[in-house]
Design a protein around this nucleic acid. Structure first.
Lengths: 328, 328
DNA sequence: ACGCGCCGTGCTCATATGAGCAAAGATCCC
DNA sequence: GGGATCTTTGCTCATATGAGCACGGCGCGT
C-alpha cells in the first residue's frame, strides 16, 4: 500500500498543481477525504516529487543561500539562479546585478566603501541604479593604474559607483604590482598613496571580486604578470587572486616575494572587516571562491547557484590546500 | 514601476515557494500588505515565472493532456512526463505503464478488447496488474503468427492481458500479410479466421500501437516485409503502420495492393469504434502518431510529452499528407 | 480647471488549508 | 490469542488565502 500511496500522491499533485483543483475536489475525484489528500500532497512535496522553480534572470536561490550561510559560516549569501543562463556573460551579468541589488539594500548604508577593480566590479557598477545610496565615499583598495588600453576601467568603476551613490571616489594612484620592492616601499610611503590606504583600511565595507589563476586574469591582461608567471604560481598552488594577491586553496599567499611588491590592502584587513562582500561567479572561479570563503576573506558572498553548490559540497570549512587546483 | 513590480513578485515568489513563508510574513518583509503580496504571487504565476513540475516516472502532464484533447478532438489523452527519462526504453516503459493504468481504470470495463501486437503492446501487457478487470475477453485484431524466433510474442501479449484480466484470449490464427491475394482471401474465409475477425469487429474497445516506417518495424523483423519494401512505402508517403497497414500522413492506405493481402480489422473499424486506444511513444513515431490522430484512428491516445507537444504544435486536425515524412 | 473613468489599493467575508487530537486499525511481541 | 504500541484516519478549530467591493489617486478629455 505504500507503493499505491506514492502513486496517489502523484495523481493528487497533478490535480492540485497542474489543474488548480482544490484538495476537496481532488478528494472526490480520487475517492479520498480531503485530509488524506492534504497529507498526500505534503508527502509528495517532502519526497521531492514536486519541484518548484522560479525562472527569472533576477531570481535567487534562497534555500541554497541558507545552506551556504550555514555550512560556510557566512554572515550572508546571495545566490543567483543559473536556470536559463545561456553563456558566461549572462551569468556574470546576473551575479553583478544581484551584487548591485545587495549593495543598494544594505542597511546601514556604508559611508565608506572599499572596492577592488576588474571585470566583475565594473559590471556591478553598471548595474547599480542612481541614488543607490545617499552619499558613499568609494575608495580603491588595490593598485589601479593599468599599464595598457584598459587604463581607466578601474577608475571608472570606482567613479561610477561613487557617482551613483551620491558620493565621490578616491583612487589609489599606484600600479597594482611594482617590479622592485624598493619602488613599492617608496610609493607606499608617499602621502598620496598612504593616505588612500589609510582611508581604505578604515572603510565600513569592502566589495571585491577574485580572479581565476589562469592566463585570462586581468593582471595578465593589464601587463602586470605574464602567462608564465601565472603558470608558475599555479604550480606552487595558486587558485586565483584576491585584490591582486595570489592565494592557494587555503587562502594563504602563494608567493611572499611577489606579494611584497603588491600595493593595496593586505588580505588580513579583509579578514578583519565587519563587512566584506565577495562577488565571484563562474565555474572557472570555483577554486578561488572556495579559498576565499574557507579562509574567511569575505563575510558575504554573492555568487551563482553552481558555484554555491560546489562550495556546499566541498565543505570549505575544512580547507585543503591541495584539492581544487585545476578545477577550472 | 511596472519593472519593480516584476522584481517584487519574484522576491515574493522566492519567499513563498522556497522559504515557505506566509503571504503575511512576506508582506512585512517586503513592506507590503498581504493582499499586494497575493496579487504579486498571482502575477508571478501568470507570467510563468513560477514553474511547478512533478517529477516522477509515473507523473502525467494534465495540462498537455487537456490541450491535446482539445486541439485534436480526442475523447481522452494520457501524456506521460519525459523529465528525467534516460533512454528510449524508459520512455516506452513509462508510456506502457500509463496505458496499462488507463486500461485498468476504464469504466465500464470492456467485455471484449481487441488488441494488436508488437513491442509496445507486449510492454503494456507486462505492466498490467493481476485482476485489472473481472473477466475480459481479448481478441487479436491483426494477423499474429510470426515467421521467426519472435513467434509467440503476439500470442503471449494477448494471453497475458486476458489472464491478468480474468478472461481468455482469442488469437487470430493467420499470418499478418500473405504473399498472394488468393491465399489471403482463402484464409480470411476460413471459419477459424472469420469467426475471430467477426469477434474482433464487435469488440467494446480496441488497444493498439503503431510502428514507424523504417527498417526497425516489427513487420520487417518478423519477416513479412524487407527493408526495401519499407523504403519503397516511405517513398510513396508512408509514415508508419497501424495494425499492420501502412498509412501516409493523412492516415490513408499507401499501397492498396499490399493492404489487400493484409489480414486483420480494416482501419475503418477502428475509426468507427466507440473506444479505440492508441499507445504511441518516441520521437521516431511522431509522424505516425500525427497520422493516427489526424485521421481519427483513435479516440484515446496514450503518449509521451514530447510527442504530445509535437502533435499540438502541428495541428493534426488539418492533415497534410506531405509534411511530416522523415521527421523521425 | 473640472469632471469622468480607470487602475491600483486595502478592506470584508467566504473558502481552503494546515495543526493538533482522539479513535480505529495494524503490527508485533509474548 | 491478547495486549501494548505504533500508524493511520477522520475530525475540530485556528489560520491562510482568494473573491469581490469600495475608495482614492491619476490621467484624460472637454
Amino acid at each position: 500500500m505504500i507503493e499505491s500511496d506514492e502513486l496517489l500522491s502523484i495523481r493528487a499533485a497533478e490535480l492540485y498543481y497542474e489543474e488548480d483543483k482544490t484538495q476537496d475536489e481532488i478528494g472526490s475525484i480520487l475517492a479520498l477525504t480531503r485530509w488524506k489528500v492534504g497529507r498526500l500532497l505534503a508527502q509528495a512535496k517532502a519526497s521531492g516529487f514536486v519541484r518548484i522553480e522560479i525562472v527569472h534572470p533576477r531570481a535567487r536561490r534562497l534555500p541554497v543561500e541558507r545552506r551556504l550561510r550555514e555550512t560556510c559560516g557566512l554572515a550572508d549569501a546571495i545566490v543567483v539562479s543559473t536556470s536559463g543562463v545561456e553563456d558566461q556573460d549572462e551569468l556574470q551579468s546576473r551575479t553583478a546585478q544581484a551584487a548591485a541589488d545587495y549593495l543598494a539594500t544594505l542597511r546601514p548604508v556604508p559611508r565608506t566603501l572599499g572596492i577592488s577593480w576588474g571585470r566583475t566590479l565594473d559590471d556591478v557598477s553598471r548595474h547599480l541604479h542612481d541614488g543607490w545610496a545617499g552619499g558613499v565615499d568609494v575608495v580603491q583598495i588595490n593598485g589601479g593604474v593599468s599599464l595598457n588600453r584598459r587604463a581607466g576601467t578601474a577608475a571608472s568603476t570606482a567613479v561610477t559607483i561613487a557617482q551613483k551613490g551620491g558620493g565621490h571616489a578616491t583612487l589609489l594612484p599606484s600600479p597594482a604590482i611594482l617590479e622592485r620592492l624598493e619602488t613599492k616601499r617608496a610609493i607606499e610611503s608617499d602621502r598620496a598613496v598612504s593616505a588612500v590606504l589609510d582611508l581604505a583600511s578604515n572603510a565600513d565595507a569592502y566589495l571585491f571580486s577574485a580572479g581565476a589563476a589562469d592566463a585570462t586574469s586581468v593582471l595578465v591582461d593589464s601587463g602586470y604578470l605574464t602567462s608564465d608567471d601565472v603558470a608558475g604560481l599555479v604550480r606552487r598552488g595558486a587558485v586565483g587572486d584576491v585584490v591582486g594577491r595570489y592565494v592557494d586553496g587555503a587562502g594563504a599567499i602563494v608567493d611572499e616575494r611577489l606579494d611584497e611588491r603588491t600595493i593595496g590592502l593586505p588580505l588580513e584587513s579583509l579578514r578583519a572587516a565587519q563587512l566584506s562582500i565577495a562577488v565571484i561567479a563562474g565555474a572557472a572561479k570555483h577554486a578561488v571562491a572556495r579559498a576565499v570563503v574557507a579562509s574567511g576573506l569575505c563575510t558575504v558572498l554573492v555568487t551563482d547557484e553552481e558555484t554555491a553548490l560546489h562550495l556546499i559540497e566541498n565543505h570549505p570549512s575544512v580547507p585543503d590546500s591541495e584539492g581544487q587546483r585545476g578545477t577550472a
